[in-house]
Design a protein around this nucleic acid. Sequence first.
DNA 1: GACCGCATGTAACTTGTTACATGATTAG
DNA 2: CTAATCATGTAACAAGTTACATGCGGTC
Lengths: 174, 174
Amino acid sequence: MLEYVILGMLIEGPMSGYDLKKTIDSTVGFFYKVSFGSLYPALKRLAAKEWVTVTEMEDSKNKKLYTLLPVGKEAFLIWLAGPLELSRNDHLSKIFFFDYLDEETRQRRLTEYQSKLEGQITQITAVQQIVSGELQNMPNPENYHYRVSVLTYGLEFYNMEKRWVQAIQERNDH
Amino acid sequence: MLEYVILGMLIEGPMSGYDLKKTIDSTVGFFYKVSFGSLYPALKRLAAKEWVTVTEMEDSKNKKLYTLLPVGKEAFLIWLAGPLELSRNDHLSKIFFFDYLDEETRQRRLTEYQSKLEGQITQITAVQQIVSGELQNMPNPENYHYRVSVLTYGLEFYNMEKRWVQAIQERNDH
DNA sequence: GACCGCATGTAACTTGTTACATGATTAG
DNA sequence: CTAATCATGTAACAAGTTACATGCGGTC
């Protein structure tokens, strides 16, 4: 996934590995972490696949500029148009670049994602029902407070996501 | 971290690898995924460290029961009492087992986590201010809708977490 | 001269995924 | 009898982390 995030960042213009890290940290950094140990090998792989080109700068410091090639941009757009997955912040990495995607696919993916969220909410609600039933037959239900709280978390998390997706879909800016 | 989740699950009583997976899937499964390919090697490591014992069952099916040893429980409690980290669902895995932790450490860790959340909120709010300033000098700010939305997501996510931690800390059950 | 920020990279290690291999038992 | 579920495990691969190594340029 890092490879695609890099490609996405290079759409705006060529950058060095060092600058890429700074850009990633300051934009998607709060949910997606990069280290140089993963960034440089990723750039090497992208260059090997010929999705980007490397230009060595002569401004001392042996800086290298990475430029996105058309094939790379195509690969990026294919990734971008793919379905939004529930876990691992895959969806946020994609949605961050959604301005590059056509409106139709965008709406389709967001609506599709909404259904996935609803599925999760239904599932957790069902589990919650069972658990709260079982809890009533327990001698000391207060001993399960935190276990139950984590279920509540799940519900609140997915509901928050649902509200958020709805809002961005309707382009409610405030 | 999987090792600690396993230990936590074994507090309730001995289990097989297969049952462990089912238990994990149905409790913390919505944010923590396990596969047999990671579970069995983890059990092997735990047995090698002598944190659990293995008992081979003769009820056919060559089932193996894993039993938590006192040393293992100690290791688990040390992990459990450690600080709650912001990312990677580390905090949820820990809070799920918080019923096993003493009230003092519990409150300390939750309050500490609240501060971390507030730090994140402050940070994202600052970035949001800068971005919305920059956006006013742009010819077409609507082209950055989704980029900005991801920032809003961050804010809503951390605020949701804050409310949730507050609620569980005050033990508001509904 | 020391230290910080810029700048690139490698190596060992950790962790997890996917796919495969095997085999027993149970319900239709 | 056959499909699903129970049950354990390995091997190849993927991805990322941490620590280390190197060196330039500017500033206090």
